[in-house]
């Protein structure tokens, strides 16, 4: 279908984008790859008045080591994450997760910043960044601030990002050789996850187990106490309120969370 009409701006620098957002923040929507936004616009579920296209800003597309962390530009595409040598060595979870997003065509357009900003609890990268204990760097005319991933997602499709802010960077710790795994359960390869579990360095992120990406805190605590993988994984769904849809009931999703967590922990332990 066809989106409702809108105005379009493609600022040539990050500063210009921030300025434009400050000026027309209420009616503007940021678009990078457009692969979260355009689908809902085509179904006329969203109708922004102004699209601010930051997809061409090369200054937002990078992956680099910065101290104990890896800094990833918000405009870095899923495909770029997949093939990044830096990530393969420093944060191998991320390329593996990126590889499960959508399909190759989607991965050639969609960006990590867009995925995090969209805030879909069924999406892959938010839970991975959450499991990584990452931070999201936001910029507005008021300056720059960092929000821990644990505080970034506030509800279904809502985040701590203000209308005049845009995500400029995602920072995640260098996990190096720490065990990691991503277990994604779908009916079809390019479906959204029914449930998925990201494990890295003893931390566990859950996809589609509530209105936001979640950490399996009970599992993490049990692991920290030295409980077995089986015992810890059995706690993966503690405190979650997963959704109901044609793909699954809450009970089913809780089972998946436990099974996938166990499998992910086992894989991570073997790495």
């Amino acid at each position: 279908m066809i989106p409702v009409g809108f105005d379009y701006a493609r600022p040539d620098s990050l500063d210009a984008a921030v300025a434009l957002l400050a000026e027309r923040g209420d009616e503007a929507t940021i678009m990078a790859g457009g692969h979260s936004l355009l689908p809902v616009m085509k179904l006329r579920l969203a109708a922004p008045e102004l699209i601010v296209d930051i997809g061409r800003l090369r200054e937002l597309n990078y992956v680099k080591v910065d101290g104990d962390e890896v800094a990833i530009g918000a405009g870095t595409r899923h495909h770029d994450l997949e093939v990044s040598d830096v990530l393969a060595a420093e944060v191998p979870l991320l390329p593996a997760v990126a590889r499960t997003v959508g399909d190759p065509q989607v991965r050639h357009r969609g960006t990590i910043g867009g995925s995090l900003a969209h805030g879909d609890p069924a999406s892959d990268l938010p839970a991975a960044v959450l499991a990584l204990d990452g931070t999201i760097v936001l910029r507005s005319p008021r300056g720059q601030r960092s929000v821990p991933a644990t505080e970034f997602w506030t509800g279904v499709f809502t985040t701590a990002k203000e209308p005049d802010e845009l995500i400029v960077e995602i920072r995640v710790p260098r996990t190096g050789s720490a065990g990691w795994a991503y277990e994604k359960f779908t009916r079809r390869a390019n479906d959204w996850a029914i449930v998925a579990v990201a494990v890295v360095d003893g931390r566990v992120g859950l996809v589609n187990m509530g209105s936001t990406p979640l950490r399996a805190s009970a599992t993490e605590a049990a692991l920290a106490e030295g409980k077995s993988i089986a015992e810890a994984a059995a706690l993966a769904a503690e405190g979650t309120e997963p959704p109901t849809d044609t793909a699954g009931t809450p009970e089913y999703r809780k089972n998946l969370a436990r099974v996938l967590t166990r499998r992910a922990l086992e894989t991570a332990a073997g790495r």
Partner: peptide
């Protein structure tokens, strides 16, 4: 109309994309 079927796939600067989910202006 949901970026699912790929019938509209073209190469954009050599990479496959779904042209139903790319604006001409992009």
């Amino acid at each position: 109309d949901t970026t699912s079927c790929g019938a509209c796939t073209v190469l954009l600067d050599g990479e496959s994309v779904k042209s139903c989910t790319v604006l001409a202006v992009q």
